[in-house]
Amino acid sequence: MAYDKPLPRPTPLSQPFWDGAREHKLLLQRCQSCGAYRFTPQALCRECYAEEYEWAETSGRGKVYSYTIVYRPQTLTFMDDVPYVLAVIELAEGPHMLSNVVGCAPSDVHIDMPVVVQFEDATDEITLYKFRPAE
């Protein structure tokens, strides 16, 4: 069945991130001046304002900063997913990332739980990044 939930619409700034996801790589902008990572994508480094950056591959690992079990679907296309886990993941590289935790019962999710990225190919163009419990 065709993917019918909302899909991200990349911008010129974020396109490399989504290109990386399609190759099952979790990329973050890293400042070429001071080395700071940032997410969400921004034109300038948030630490030193340098314009130059690279898209650096991350470990894909992190831990749960916070989570919620969602019972009321955002829109009807999420009806089959409830209850689903929305979580803020604190990546090993530092930045926080909103995503879903999958691959375990929602009631097993807890703060500080180690997680690792799991990619889901939604369409030919878009691969989503979710997180599952790390081994």
Binding site: P8, S66, F78, L98
Partner: peptide
């Protein structure tokens, strides 16, 4: 539920956003 590329697809909406804050 703004149509933003890093939130909308996750099933995020305001109650869930503040649930995340409250849980922490």
């Amino acid at each position: 539920r703004p149509e933003y590329e890093f939130t909308e697809w996750t099933g995020s909406m305001t109650p869930a956003q503040f649930a995340l804050q409250m849980r922490r």
